[in-house]
Design a protein around this nucleic acid. Structure first.
Lengths: 206, 206
DNA sequence: GTCTATACTACGATAGAC
DNA sequence: GTCTATCGTAGTATAGAC
């Protein structure tokens, strides 16, 4: 499947060098095919770029299907169960951000966030949207003191703690005095992340 | 001062399009000068890029001087004072991330985090390093239960909540159902951020 | 479908006038 | 110091063979 091979390579190159910085010649060469096959399969550089966004959205949906399962029938849960599920979801996000696999597509997404194009719209509509509303419905049970229209804000602040592990990876490594985050550092970060999240979710009533 | 003008424009263009995507022609044109003045002042495109990093580091140090002031003599503080200072610092970071000014250089920094070059080293050594150690010394008083070598991790997780306001701005806007973050949304986010941070910092003892 | 060959455009660097 | 002019390279797109 030449299309998938081109997309995988392109996500890496676009993420690393940006849309203009990446070259279709290099992408084709690294995929062991001719540059013109990009035109054939995707219509051109722009088409390949959008195909990358769709591919990432699909992978995200797939990877976070277990998380989404935990947001089902949220309205029937008591507060403790909702908190427990949110802790599990945050930890899954953290594991994703820590995982090697996220390196390539995270670069792509973070880039799009800075200067959103049509590709961001596809990422949001194709994956992020469902996660945000799912987490929002759990937050509504966990923190009934927060007005409905502020749940999205709270979700993003929670999510920020995991996002930083990718979006500011270079600084995180400096802060930990390491050159990369492996099993030991990851476990420590997740431990603090869990206790932070628990502290946040337990608040608002006392 | 043509150098400053070129740097200001370049930070915007490099942040938007990346190192390769930005063109010295456009940067020069937007600065109302000839392309060859980049060669004259900075030796070339790479020199201009590094000058941008140094410029941002200097601006960051300047802007966060008040924060740094709050980290002085941290070892003499009691826990409540340390927490109060950390809340103030986190809020200042949040204001920076929410502020229009951060838009340009934040793009530049986030890009460097994804694929660090020599420019990241300059950003870290020139600005981030001092902030991290400063916050670390306050955290040591606020959360004496956390081992010393894990304070950097906690600082980054805290910082992540503010970082998300810039690094994932597009998603934050979607989550809030707005197209931009102005005074009202900013105040709401900072309110939640403060209570989240307080909950985190108050933890660890009970 | 995948290749080679080529057309056209834009890039960064540099030389040299002023 | 700042400009114009030009060189060599590398980019995307496309036409056409197989």
């Amino acid at each position: 499947m030449m299309q998938n091979r081109l997309i995988e390579t392109a996500i890496d190159q676009f993420g690393r060098f940006g849309f203009d910085g990446a070259s279709t010649r290099d992408i084709a060469r690294a995929s062991d095919t001719a540059m013109s096959s990009i035109t054939y399969h995707f219509g051109g550089k722009q088409g390949l770029y959008l195909a990358c966004a769709d591919h990432i959205a699909a992978k995200l949906r797939e990877r976070h299907a277990p998380s989404m399962e935990l947001t089902k029938d949220a309205q029937d849960l008591d507060r403790e169960s909702a908190i427990e599920r949110l802790l599990a979801i945050v930890d899954m996000y953290a594991q994703t951000m820590l995982h090697q696999d996220s390196k390539h597509w995270a670069r792509f997404i973070v880039r799009e966030q800075q200067a959103p194009t049509e590709a961001f719209e596809r990422l949001y509509e194709g994956a992020m949207k469902y996660m945000l509303t799912g987490v929002g419905s759990l937050l509504e049970r966990a923190r009934p003191d927060i007005p409905r229209d502020e749940l999205g804000a709270m979700a993003m602040l929670l999510f920020g703690q995991t996002l930083v592990l990718r979006a500011a990876r270079a600084t995180v490594c400096k802060a930990l005095g390491t050159t990369q985050l492996d099993e030991a550092e990851g476990a420590m970060l997740r431990r603090h992340l869990r206790s932070n999240t628990l502290a946040i979710l337990s608040g608002g009533t006392q």
